[in-house]
Design a protein around this nucleic acid. Structure first.
Lengths: 201, 201
DNA sequence: CTAAACATGTAAAGCGTTACATGATTCG
DNA sequence: CGAATCATGTAACGCTTTACATGTTTAG
């Protein structure tokens, strides 16, 4: 159900075609909530049939067409309801930590590879979050630009602060994952050291 | 696909009926990878038809029956392949951080509620992870008990170390989430303070 | 005898992934 | 005229959730 609100958030700032929305999505909210095109187009149709948005059919050239979506009153209300409702947390289901619990069944090399890959993966994410934060702060971020143009000046600081806050959380989480993977590598070294303490002497 | 390996991990230690497995699951791996009964029974059937486990039909009393599952050679190999294979990370899709990015659209009260609930949720999780770690270290943990009985003494330290490591990662993540929520509350206070600095004087 | 625990599922719906599929327009 | 970009989807499959559905055995 979150995709719907991520899309609504972008459309609330101003009408967009499915294609524009999809492009904008990929370089903004898509960092926090990934969705491929093949999910976005059908979801827009469903949102229209649910009365949250209306599609305005436009022509492009001779035969080209595109559908530009506008948020309805109902859509705006739904968005605010979502933004104000208590969150429902889903049950824990974490592939990486499940794997970690069974690292004893892996070879030393595989365990090491797992941990270095985990650190690498989260370093990459961390880079992305830090980039996003810099772009938001500098006003380059496309979502923030559109958003800031649409709201009174007083509220801009607030809008920027919450966007930065959200990405900060993801960055801090990535940092925690990196530290954890490094602890795991230390654990591997310690276990390897204990395994053959006599033969080493 | 992880459920299958979580189940295989438990069965590898010794045969269990679907019911026993389901109970044991809930108080062990289920903390890391939640799955309801209604998912476990069908998955066992699928695993059997895929040749990873075999079901041995037993009777209980007059009419009662139960199916006890054993891991096949194929199942054991599959498990090791899983434990040694590189992880595939799925795209980011995080409801809480998506919501945080749009906290500007929420009322101050709703934002505060969201953040306190987030902290509360992760404090609860943290308590659970810390509990699990204590139970693993003390040898009370049912999964670890069964597991330790099945492996040579030298490898026990290794097995315990990795279990603790996995839960430590979850605990550290929970701590990061709590810190983040607290930063968010500070942000709210700061924004509230700036909003009406003159009327306060 | 009755409640708790044992025991095992089916059905429907929603969400997400991956692969497939097609065509128009604009810019160089 | 060819490539990039614009533009919009369908189909199949798998995982997860939620609700429903049923019956047996054992301990008190």
């Amino acid at each position: 159900m979150s995709l719907r609100y991520a899309l609504l958030a972008l459309l609330r700032v101003g009408p967009l075609s499915g294609y524009e929305l999809q492009k904008l999505f990929a370089e903004s909210v898509g960092h926090v909530w990934h969705a491929p095109d093949s999910q976005i187009y059908p979801e827009l149709k469903r949102m229209e049939s649910d009365g949250l948005i209306t599609g305005e059919e436009q022509t492009r050239g001779q035969r080209g067409r595109r559908r530009v979506y506008h948020v309805t009153d109902r859509g705006g209300e739904d968005f605010f309801a979502w933004a104000n409702a208590p969150m429902e947390y889903s049950r824990v289901r974490d592939p990486a930590h499940l794997r970690a619990a069974y690292l004893e069944s892996a070879s030393d090399d595989a365990a090491r590879d797992f941990l270095t890959a985990h650190a690498r993966h989260h370093r990459e994410l961390l880079r992305r979050w830090r980039d996003e934060i810099a772009r938001i702060r500098s006003g380059e971020h496309p979502m923030v630009q559109r958003r800031l143009a649409a709201i009174p000046e007083q509220e801009r600081e607030r809008a920027v602060a919450f966007k930065v806050f959200a990405y900060e959380g993801l960055a801090q989480r990535a940092e925690a994952e990196i530290r954890w993977a490094e602890q795991g590598l230390q654990l591997l070294n310690r276990l390897a050291g204990e395994e053959a303490p006599v033969t080493a002497g």
